[in-house]
Amino acid sequence: MVKVIVNGRFLLHRITGVERYAREILAELDKIVEPGELEMAVPPAIEEVPGYKNIKVVRVGKLHNRLWEHISFPMYVKKREAVSLNLCNVAPLPAPGIVCIHDVKVKATPQYFSKKFLLWYNLLLTNAAKRAKAIITVSEFSKREIIKYYHVKAEKIHVIPNAWQHYERIPYDENTLPKYGLEKEQYFFSMCSLEPNKNFKWIAEAAKQNPDMTFAVAGSINEKVFADGLGFECPANMNLLGYVSDEEAKTLMRDCKAF
């Protein structure tokens, strides 16, 4: 049997959508794989790793971050005569293996991203589209987009959707609304990274048209990635909460007027 080795670089990052997807997929795989069937390689800088029962976690190499991902990790995979599994869009250039491409926003909405970001991600996604053994994505829409922009054969792409079940394990945080100055069922809530391609501007327009209502948005923006930041001003009744914890997010969803 061919061994599959997971790219564990995502553990370096704060949990957002793609990192959540990777963590939950692996947690479920750990319940069904045989011991030694699946392995996860992580950079030396990783301090805490999930406690798996059947997935073996190994620290690999001496390099860090992207250099680790494109040099140390593929070298280890090759040495083990294995296939890499990359769940967060990015896969090593020398051997992309199996790649989960969550979206192709760099092709669909390139105007929102810096030239440096576009160049790098187009290189990674083009390489993965041409050379990956298989591609995973999270929806039929994303599958159609990958086919449209990268001309991948449909049978090479497998849809494994996002899910919600991890929220069953998360408790509520009753201090959330006082912390953010909100009242139960008196605000509209949205949670996403504040990227222009997420149509975040639509929420701002809705807030302007409804000045007596409160709009709370959880998420952060990386000014280094996006071409013009938000590209618009937020109205006074729009509260940008920044990054929120899982417990806070669950409470904000429960207590909002609409999500």
Rank of each mutant, 00 (worst) to 15 (best):
H158L: 13
K156A: 04
C100V: 15
Y150G: 03
S114N: 09
I98K: 01
F113A: 02
V152T: 04
S190N: 14
S114L: 03
V106G: 01
V104S: 05
I101K: 00
K115H: 12
L67M: 15
N162K: 11
I101H: 02
A128C: 08
F189T: 02
S139L: 13
I160A: 14
L118R: 09
L182G: 05
H70I: 09
A128M: 08
E140W: 11
Q111P: 08
Y180C: 11
I98V: 13
R144C: 05
I71D: 03
Y76N: 02
K115C: 03
I98R: 00
E174M: 14
I170W: 02
S142T: 15
T126F: 09
K107Q: 08
I170S: 03
D173K: 01
H166T: 12
Q186G: 07
Y76M: 04
N89S: 09
L177V: 00
Y121T: 03
Y121W: 10
I160C: 11
E69W: 00
P178E: 07
N86W: 04
L93R: 03
K143D: 05
H158P: 05
E69M: 03
N127W: 14
P171M: 05
E140Y: 10
C88K: 10
E155D: 15
T126I: 11
N162L: 13
A154I: 11
E183R: 12
L182H: 11
H102W: 08
M191L: 15
R169F: 11
W68I: 08
E140H: 12
S139I: 10
Y180T: 08
F141I: 15
A154H: 13
S72I: 03
A129R: 09
W164Q: 13
P92G: 07
K133I: 10
N122T: 11
S139K: 06
V77W: 00
S84F: 01
V77I: 04
K79V: 13
M191C: 15
K115W: 10
L177M: 01
I147Y: 04
I71K: 02
K153V: 10
I136P: 03
K115I: 02
E185W: 02
A154N: 13
V159G: 08
A108S: 15
E185N: 09
V106K: 00
I136E: 00
P94D: 12
E185F: 07
K143N: 08
H151A: 11
F141P: 04
M75I: 15
F188G: 06
K107G: 03
A108I: 15
S190C: 14
K148D: 10
V138D: 12
K156I: 06
E174I: 13
M75N: 14
V159A: 06
Q111S: 10
A132W: 03
I146P: 01
L93M: 09
L123Q: 11
Y187A: 01
E81Q: 12
N86G: 02
C100Q: 03
R131F: 12
M75G: 06
